[in-house]
Nucleic acid binder design. Structure first.
Lengths: 102, 102
DNA sequence: ACCAATACTAAGTAATACTTAGAGGTGGGG
DNA sequence: CCCCACCTCTAAGTATTACTTAGTATTGGT
């Protein structure tokens, strides 16, 4: 399975949407939505970036999450996404300093 | 300009590689590398995920960075990428807790 | 077992990326 | 200024990939 397929399924399951419903909410035409969503999740085809952006909005995850290869990074992105601007700045500062320390 | 185009150029400039050199290091054929790299950076075409992964390796950034729409998230991903496993775990814990607090 | 909802697949058509061949732009040396 | 080397960009044709259609499986509930 592709990275995008894996993350799509993961996020979709969390919010409890069917493939079809997610596709429709993201603006895909009813006639082909079922085939396309299946192809995306199974890695047969890859959705373009604009569509991935719409998936991210519907699923309330940052777009980067849907491309995240590493599980730790994926997890971080989920939490970070929901923080206030202030808290985001704090996390960035802390991470930057940890990086500089060594 | 597309998100990927913008991030590619950003990361490429940081490490001081030409479009062509980056493309070759990522495994693109010499005959077409110049045209393709220009098309990617300008958003004329979009590289597939496997190629983006190779760009990320050459540029020493996480693959998610090259898809990051938001500058704050892009910055975070750069720092986070370079941390030890222990420090990554700390950042995730802290971010998770901040998220739960509100 | 049955039905409804959901997920999946093959094959043809449409759209997108890749290749080719070259043109434009930039900076340094003579 | 002119030339050269290097880098970046572009149009148009070809190759590859995604989308659509028309279904067939699978899953979960009663």
């Amino acid at each position: 399975m592709s990275v995008i397929g894996k993350r799509l399924k993961e996020a979709r399951s969390r919010v409890g949407l069917s493939q079809e419903r997610l596709g429709i909410l993201a603006g895909i035409d009813e006639m082909s939505v079922s085939a396309r969503m299946s192809q995306y999740e199974r890695g047969v085809h890859t959705p373009g970036y604009p569509l991935v952006e719409r998936f991210a909005e519907v699923l309330e995850v940052p777009v980067e999450y849907l491309y995240a290869k590493d599980d730790d990074t994926a997890e971080l992105l989920l939490y970070f996404h929901r923080l206030s601007a202030d808290n985001k700045a704090r996390v960035i500062e802390m991470t930057k300093n940890m990086d500089l320390e060594r």
